[in-house]
Deep mutational scan, measured.
Amino acid sequence: LKKVVALYDYMPMNANDLQLRKGDEYFILEESNLPWWRARDKNGQEGYIPSNYVTEAE
């Protein structure tokens, strides 16, 4: 899975979204639905995130 790091905080707009915290790492599960990607956080929560809020992890 592709790993990304959040560049900004993101508060979910609806139940399908995943909250982002700046500096945290996330795994990308699906990239087909631009600009929204399906992601999983370190706690196993899954949801959609804005792809322009993250960058690929080193």
Results as ranks from 00 to 15, higher is better:
residue 39 A to P: 01
residue 21 R to F: 13
residue 40 R to W: 06
residue 47 G to V: 01
residue 17 D to N: 10
residue 3 K to Q: 06
residue 22 K to H: 06
residue 17 D to L: 12
residue 50 P to C: 11
residue 21 R to P: 00
residue 48 Y to H: 06
residue 35 P to I: 15
residue 58 E to D: 13
residue 21 R to Y: 14
residue 14 N to K: 12
residue 53 Y to M: 11
residue 55 T to G: 09
residue 42 K to D: 06
residue 58 E to M: 13
residue 14 N to S: 13
residue 6 A to P: 00
residue 39 A to S: 03
residue 50 P to M: 09
residue 53 Y to G: 05
residue 25 E to I: 15
residue 53 Y to S: 07
residue 47 G to W: 02
residue 31 E to F: 12
residue 21 R to E: 07
residue 53 Y to N: 03
residue 28 I to F: 02
residue 26 Y to T: 01
residue 4 V to C: 06
residue 54 V to D: 00
residue 48 Y to F: 13
residue 16 N to A: 12
residue 19 Q to R: 12
residue 20 L to W: 01
residue 24 D to T: 06
residue 42 K to N: 09
residue 43 N to M: 12
residue 10 Y to E: 01
residue 40 R to N: 03
residue 12 P to Y: 02
residue 14 N to R: 11
residue 35 P to V: 15
residue 12 P to L: 02
residue 38 R to Y: 15
residue 27 F to C: 07
residue 8 Y to S: 07
residue 45 Q to G: 08
residue 15 A to R: 12
residue 34 L to D: 15
residue 37 W to D: 02
residue 52 N to K: 11
residue 21 R to W: 13
residue 22 K to L: 06
residue 38 R to D: 02
residue 44 G to C: 06
residue 21 R to Q: 10
residue 24 D to Y: 09
residue 14 N to V: 06
residue 17 D to S: 10
residue 25 E to F: 15
residue 6 A to N: 00
residue 9 D to S: 06
residue 16 N to K: 11
residue 13 M to D: 09
residue 45 Q to C: 12
residue 20 L to I: 05
residue 19 Q to S: 09
residue 33 N to E: 14
residue 22 K to C: 07
residue 23 G to S: 03
residue 5 V to A: 03
residue 3 K to L: 10
residue 11 M to N: 12
residue 49 I to D: 00
residue 48 Y to S: 05
residue 28 I to D: 00
residue 33 N to M: 12
residue 11 M to A: 13
residue 27 F to H: 08
residue 1 L to W: 14
residue 10 Y to C: 04
residue 53 Y to V: 04
residue 7 L to Q: 05
residue 58 E to F: 14
residue 32 S to W: 08
residue 38 R to F: 15
residue 37 W to P: 05
residue 28 I to A: 02
residue 37 W to C: 08
residue 23 G to A: 03
residue 19 Q to D: 04
residue 46 E to S: 06
residue 5 V to R: 07
residue 18 L to Q: 01
residue 48 Y to P: 02
residue 27 F to Q: 06
residue 21 R to N: 11
residue 58 E to H: 14
residue 44 G to L: 05
residue 7 L to S: 04
residue 3 K to Y: 06
residue 7 L to Y: 03
residue 36 W to M: 15
residue 47 G to F: 03
residue 4 V to W: 07
residue 48 Y to C: 10
residue 32 S to N: 12
residue 41 D to H: 03
residue 39 A to D: 02
residue 35 P to R: 15
residue 44 G to P: 00
residue 14 N to W: 09
residue 35 P to H: 15
residue 7 L to T: 05
residue 29 L to R: 03
residue 49 I to H: 01
residue 24 D to A: 08
residue 29 L to M: 08
residue 35 P to D: 15
residue 42 K to Q: 11
residue 1 L to R: 06
residue 42 K to W: 07
residue 39 A to K: 00
residue 13 M to V: 15
residue 48 Y to A: 05
residue 15 A to K: 13
residue 43 N to W: 13
residue 47 G to C: 02
residue 22 K to I: 07
residue 5 V to M: 08
residue 7 L to K: 06
residue 28 I to T: 02
residue 5 V to Q: 06
residue 2 K to P: 05
residue 45 Q to D: 11
residue 51 S to P: 07
residue 23 G to K: 02
residue 30 E to D: 14
residue 20 L to R: 00
residue 17 D to R: 09
residue 15 A to C: 11
residue 39 A to W: 02
residue 8 Y to Q: 11
residue 39 A to T: 02
residue 41 D to Y: 02
residue 31 E to R: 08
residue 5 V to S: 04
residue 18 L to K: 00
residue 19 Q to G: 12
residue 33 N to F: 09
residue 12 P to K: 05
residue 7 L to A: 04
residue 34 L to V: 10
residue 11 M to T: 14
residue 50 P to R: 07
residue 47 G to P: 00
residue 27 F to G: 03
residue 52 N to M: 12
residue 19 Q to P: 14
residue 19 Q to C: 09
residue 7 L to D: 03
residue 24 D to V: 07
residue 8 Y to M: 12
residue 30 E to H: 08
residue 46 E to W: 06
residue 10 Y to M: 04
residue 41 D to E: 03
residue 6 A to C: 04
residue 27 F to V: 10
residue 13 M to N: 12
residue 46 E to H: 04
residue 53 Y to C: 09
residue 34 L to P: 13
residue 8 Y to N: 07
residue 9 D to W: 03
residue 46 E to M: 06
residue 24 D to I: 05
residue 50 P to T: 03
residue 31 E to D: 12
residue 39 A to L: 06
residue 52 N to A: 15
residue 29 L to T: 06
residue 10 Y to V: 04
residue 53 Y to R: 05
residue 3 K to F: 06
residue 23 G to E: 03
residue 18 L to H: 01
residue 40 R to T: 06
residue 46 E to T: 08
residue 7 L to I: 12
residue 12 P to T: 04
residue 18 L to G: 00
residue 15 A to Q: 12
residue 10 Y to F: 12
residue 21 R to A: 08
residue 35 P to Y: 15
residue 1 L to Y: 12
residue 44 G to E: 04
residue 24 D to R: 06
residue 15 A to Y: 10
residue 21 R to L: 10
residue 58 E to P: 14
residue 57 A to N: 09
residue 38 R to V: 09
residue 10 Y to I: 03
residue 31 E to V: 11
residue 19 Q to T: 10
residue 1 L to C: 09
residue 16 N to V: 08
residue 14 N to G: 13
residue 32 S to T: 13
residue 12 P to D: 02
residue 7 L to G: 02
residue 19 Q to E: 13
residue 3 K to C: 08
residue 27 F to M: 09
residue 13 M to T: 14
residue 16 N to T: 14
residue 47 G to M: 01
residue 43 N to G: 08
residue 13 M to H: 11
residue 33 N to S: 14
residue 26 Y to H: 00
residue 19 Q to K: 09
residue 8 Y to F: 13
residue 11 M to W: 13
residue 18 L to W: 02
residue 8 Y to R: 13
residue 27 F to D: 07
residue 58 E to A: 14
residue 42 K to A: 11
residue 2 K to W: 07
residue 30 E to P: 03
residue 46 E to G: 02
residue 29 L to S: 03
residue 33 N to W: 10
residue 23 G to D: 07
residue 21 R to G: 03
residue 22 K to M: 09
residue 23 G to M: 03
residue 10 Y to L: 06
residue 5 V to D: 01
residue 22 K to G: 04
residue 37 W to F: 10
residue 46 E to I: 10
residue 56 E to G: 11
residue 58 E to S: 14
residue 19 Q to V: 09
residue 24 D to H: 13
residue 36 W to Y: 15
residue 58 E to K: 11
residue 20 L to V: 04
residue 32 S to P: 10
residue 55 T to W: 09
residue 50 P to A: 04
residue 15 A to F: 10
residue 47 G to L: 01
residue 49 I to C: 03
residue 44 G to K: 04
residue 17 D to Y: 15
residue 36 W to R: 10
residue 28 I to G: 01
residue 33 N to L: 12
residue 31 E to W: 14
residue 51 S to E: 05
residue 11 M to Q: 13
residue 34 L to M: 13
residue 29 L to I: 13
residue 34 L to F: 14
residue 47 G to Y: 02
residue 22 K to P: 03
residue 6 A to D: 00
residue 37 W to Q: 06
residue 28 I to L: 10
residue 3 K to N: 05
residue 39 A to M: 04
residue 17 D to H: 15
residue 6 A to E: 01
residue 33 N to I: 11
residue 21 R to M: 10
residue 55 T to D: 06
residue 4 V to T: 03
residue 54 V to G: 00
residue 20 L to C: 02
residue 52 N to C: 14
residue 51 S to Q: 08
residue 55 T to V: 14
residue 16 N to H: 13
residue 45 Q to E: 12
residue 32 S to Q: 08
residue 22 K to T: 08
residue 35 P to E: 15
residue 36 W to T: 08
residue 43 N to E: 12
residue 11 M to S: 12
residue 28 I to M: 03
residue 41 D to I: 00
residue 4 V to E: 01
residue 14 N to H: 14
residue 25 E to T: 14
residue 45 Q to M: 13
residue 13 M to F: 09
residue 7 L to E: 03
residue 16 N to I: 08
residue 5 V to I: 14
residue 20 L to Q: 00
residue 43 N to T: 11
residue 19 Q to H: 09
residue 33 N to P: 14
residue 17 D to P: 02
residue 30 E to L: 07
residue 21 R to C: 10
residue 26 Y to M: 03
residue 42 K to F: 07
residue 25 E to D: 06
residue 57 A to W: 13
residue 42 K to V: 11
residue 14 N to Q: 10
residue 26 Y to N: 00
residue 39 A to G: 05
residue 31 E to T: 11
residue 23 G to T: 02
residue 16 N to Q: 12
residue 42 K to T: 10
residue 20 L to F: 02
residue 28 I to C: 03
residue 8 Y to V: 08
residue 9 D to P: 04
residue 32 S to F: 09
residue 41 D to G: 05
residue 30 E to R: 05
residue 33 N to K: 11
residue 45 Q to R: 14
residue 6 A to Y: 01
residue 31 E to H: 11
residue 35 P to A: 15
residue 18 L to M: 07
residue 5 V to K: 08
residue 50 P to N: 12
residue 27 F to E: 10
residue 18 L to T: 01
residue 8 Y to A: 09
residue 48 Y to T: 07
residue 11 M to D: 11
residue 56 E to H: 10
residue 46 E to D: 05
residue 53 Y to W: 07
residue 38 R to G: 03
residue 10 Y to R: 08
residue 5 V to T: 10
residue 58 E to G: 14
residue 3 K to W: 09
residue 5 V to W: 11
residue 52 N to G: 12
residue 6 A to S: 05
residue 32 S to D: 09
residue 34 L to K: 13
residue 47 G to S: 01
residue 23 G to N: 05
residue 44 G to F: 05
residue 35 P to C: 15
residue 30 E to F: 09
residue 29 L to F: 07
